[in-house]
Amino acid sequence: MSEPAGVAIEHVSFGYGATRVLDGVSLEIRKGEFFAFLGPSGSGKTTLLRLVAGFGTPDSGRILIGGRDATRQPPWARNVGLVFQNYALWPHMTVAENVAFGLQRRRVPRAERDRRVRAALDLVGLAHLMDRRPAQLSGGQQQRVAIARTLAIEPEVLLLDEPLSNLDAGLRAGVRAELVELQRRLGLTTILVTHDQEEANAAADRMAVLNDGKVLQVGRPAELYDRPASRFVAGFLGTANLIEGRVDGGAFQAGGARLPLPPGAASGPAVLALRPQALRLLREGDATLPARVLRAEFLGGHVRYILEAGEALTLVAEEPHLRGLDPLPPGAPVGVAIDASQATLLRA
């Protein structure tokens, strides 16, 4: 490879006391890429991000930033910018002083420093609030100051630790878009830590799903959604029917029902993953799979049905909602058509 990776994580393990938090994690984040660590809380994603920033040293493994081994470098020598979940603005300094701090540490001459502070604040649209104290800013403004502070040092890598979690739900989508736009403009290698799959899907070029200290799958968001490699990934990224059963004679047997299969499946116990939108409801006509409505949830854009098929098979199906189409009442019989090309077969 001619160009080194933005960040390379090689077989990193880490723990506190007797507990192991990260277990042999390897990842490669390309230069200029927007990458996301996605996982539930306790999965080790924030710890991994902190190791990249230098807060902690791996028990084993290496971390390379721009091709150089940074494993044992202290945080202040790494030149990576971390935006903290709670922003960590210093309350005793003004906005400008907060932003200038990193430049002072780098002994940037005064005039240059002032210019870069202003530029960084301009970038986030807060230059007019330079002399305020953090306590006088709103949550969204504080977050943007935190980002400006990080960008001012022109870091090699931008690390974002759940940057949206402290914002009101209404603000999130807008700020997320701004973040992505900023990242594209600066071409900055960026790692986003989040437990929110929507956030990761929307922002990241690629992402890694972590659980229990291990990387389960890496890929583009749609790739992971469409082809989850494990039950966990399938379940964690969106809603999925995860049906336990057996592959037997070219069909999938579960709960007394027969479901279609993608081609090339070997016989034996397996789990069939099906997105709710891969199930089509047929109100009349010949049903591939007869079922009964247990419950319907009206979600606005679409309706989610909880169905029972065969003897003990519960399925979730979704159907777009259009005016004039009333949700089916509980107990209504329906037919379910399954698109075999949308199904993923996982090992049991």
């Binding site: 202040w76 903290f84 960590a88 210093w90």
Partner: peptide, 12 residues
């Protein structure tokens, strides 16, 4: 995190 932010900004 206030200390870590400083270290991250390059302060020893």
């Amino acid at each position: 995190s206030l200390e870590e932010a400083a270290e991250n900004m390059g302060a020893g």
